[in-house]
Every structure is written in structure tokens, then in C-alpha cells.
């Protein structure tokens, strides 16, 4: 067996590569507890933009005075609309796109919340819990998709956002919007199954879709997935969003707190003793 210099360096390089990139960064379909996340796949090519899901959502969450303006301008979700459908002028004509909470696998709002009111459930939905929230609105600051909305005109305000119909899911049913969609543009299921289904659709009809599933890696992976015939920025989605999770942005700071809390007092005490002694000596002289 002969190992010359070149093969040796090649092997070295390969080993180093394997060590550094050995653990591939893949968005997980599972929560920390090991249960599999649920999600919804939204196929823009099937959606006709009928706003039916908005009515179903309002129905499911008990908004009585619900209304969709005629000839609507660009709309955002707000404290009365947990989901809205907008129409965008794209390179392939006017296309609808539904906006709602993305239900990130590792949500920024959950990490931001200091009372654990924002909570990623093991089933997949990110929910808001009334009895815990103190209304600081830090979740609104942190959310990269600008989803949590606040009832500014209430004396006991709530944070309003899509909860993926958690009450229906826990009874084994499926979310109202996905259940009622007449075009089957919304598909509810296990996140891993949905990704497989999305890949199959892209594979079967490569001309119909662009080769990307929005939400597979965005913000570290989201439970809500988008398929589109046009680049996602044409549908008003942020395509510059980072592919690692948002809580990872503060991880460094949070893990430095305990060492500083423990070590800095010791350092300060040391300086105090040092300066005390030197000033005593000066006084003696």
C-alpha cells in the first residue's frame, strides 16, 4: 500500500471537510420531545383567491362582524383577520397568496416571550395563552413575518394570530381553512409527508412550479409550506430570510449571561482588593 504525499493531503482534506460539515444543517420535522410536527401545504397554483378561507377562519374563531372590503388594496392580517388573501401582479399574471402565521419549527416569538405565553405545541401550532401574556409585544418585535397582532383598543388586549385551529387539531380534526378549501389548495398533514408531496408535485410538473418549497428551510423551517409558479419575492414573501432559526441570534448572548454573572463579581472583588491595598500603602508613606 503506497501513500504518496498528494493522496495523503487529499485524505487529510476530506477528513477535515467531513469533520466540519459532517453534521448537515437540515430543518427538522420533529420537536425536541420527538413527536412529529403537523403543517399545512399551500399550493398557489391551485388557489383561486376566493377568500373562502378568510370566512372559514373568522367563523372558526368567532368573529361576528367580519367583512372583506371590495376591490381590496394590499391587506395585512390584523386583530380581526387571522388570515388574509392578497392578489399580486407577477410575471405569470395576477396570483393570490394567503398570509397567516408560518408556525416556525423554532419560533422567534416563543423564544422572545418572557412568560411562555407564546408556545410551540408538540403538534405543530404556535399558540398564544391568555392567562400568561403580559402584553409587552416583544413577540411582535421578534417575529420575522410580522404576524402577532395586538388589540390596541381593548382594556384587556389579546395577541391575535393564526393558531392552526389547535382546538380542532386536538380533537383529531383538521384546521378550518384546509378543511373547507374548495380547490384543495390547502393540504393538512405531517410536515414530512407534506414535503414529500410538494417534491412529488414539483417533480411531476417541473414547468408548473419553481423548484423551491418556501418554509422548508426558511427561518430554520416552518410548519406552513408554500409552492409557487413564480419566484416567492413576487408574491411578497421575504426571500432574504435566514435559513437558521431566529432564536439562534440571541443564543450567544443568553449563554454568556451566566459566566458574566459569576466571573465579573470575582474580577471586581480582585480589583477592589488591589486598589484598597495600594491606597493604604500610600497613606502609610
Amino acid at each position: 500500500m503506497s501513500i504518496n504525499r498528494r493522496t495523503f493531503f487529499k485524505a487529510m482534506g476530506a477528513t477535515a471537510m467531513a469533520l466540519t460539515v459532517g453534521k448537515p444543517v437540515v430543518a427538522s420535522n420533529e420537536t425536541e420531545s420527538g413527536t412529529e410536527l403537523n403543517g399545512i401545504l399551500y399550493d398557489v397554483t391551485r388557489c383561486r383567491g376566493c377568500h373562502g378561507c378568510e370566512w372559514d377562519c373568522a367563523d372558526a374563531h368567532g368573529f361576528s362582524d367580519f367583512d372583506i372590503p371590495k376591490n381590496p388594496p394590499f391587506r395585512q392580517t390584523d386583530e380581526k383577520h387571522r388570515t388574509v388573501v392578497n392578489h399580486y401582479e407577477t410575471s405569470k399574471g395576477s396570483l393570490p397568496r394567503k398570509i397567516q402565521c408560518m408556525h416556525c419549527n423554532q419560533p422567534a416569538c416563543d423564544a422572545a416571550c418572557l412568560t411562555q405565553a407564546m408556545h410551540k405545541t408538540p403538534e405543530g401550532p404556535v399558540i398564544w395563552r391568555e392567562d400568561k401574556c403580559m402584553g409587552c409585544r416583544y413577540c411582535m418585535i421578534s417575529c420575522p413575518f410580522d404576524i402577532p397582532k395586538f388589540e390596541y383598543h381593548s382594556t384587556n388586549p389579546q395577541i391575535v394570530k393564526c393558531d392552526m385551529c389547535i382546538n380542532l387539531i386536538s380533537e383529531g380534526e383538521i384546521p378550518a381553512c384546509a378543511y373547507n378549501c374548495p380547490e384543495e389548495a390547502l393540504m393538512y398533514g405531517k410536515r414530512s409527508d407534506l414535503i414529500r408531496e410538494a417534491r412529488r408535485r414539483i417533480h411531476d410538473e417541473p414547468d408548473k412550479y419553481i423548484d423551491h418549497i418556501y418554509g422548508e428551510h426558511e427561518a430554520g423551517g416552518t410548519s406552513w409550506l408554500y409552492l409557487s409558479p413564480v419566484p416567492f419575492n413576487e408574491l411578497g414573501l421575504n426571500t432574504n430570510i435566514q435559513h437558521t432559526s431566529y432564536p439562534s441570534l440571541t443564543k450567544g448572548f443568553i449563554s454568556s449571561i451566566a459566566p458574566v454573572d459569576i466571573l465579573l463579581p470575582a474580577v471586581l472583588l480582585g480589583i477592589y482588593e488591589a486598589t484598597k491595598k495600594s491606597s493604604n500603602k500610600e497613606e502609610e508613606i
Binding site: 418572557l114 412568560t115 411562555q116 400568561k132 402584553g135 409587552c136
Partner: peptide
């Protein structure tokens, strides 16, 4: 500025510690 100021107690008495939160 807190929408639900009474719940600030949750942070202090410790039934809901969001220890991963910078806030």
C-alpha cells in the same frame, strides 16, 4: 405600556419562567 400589566407577576413569582427570553 404593558397591555396586561397585572400578569407582570408571572415573571416575578416564577410560574412561567421564559428563561430563553432576553427580555
Amino acid at each position: 405600556d404593558l397591555g396586561r400589566p397585572l400578569n407582570v407577576i408571572n415573571v416575578v413569582i416564577g410560574n412561567n419562567f421564559g428563561v430563553s427570553s432576553v427580555l
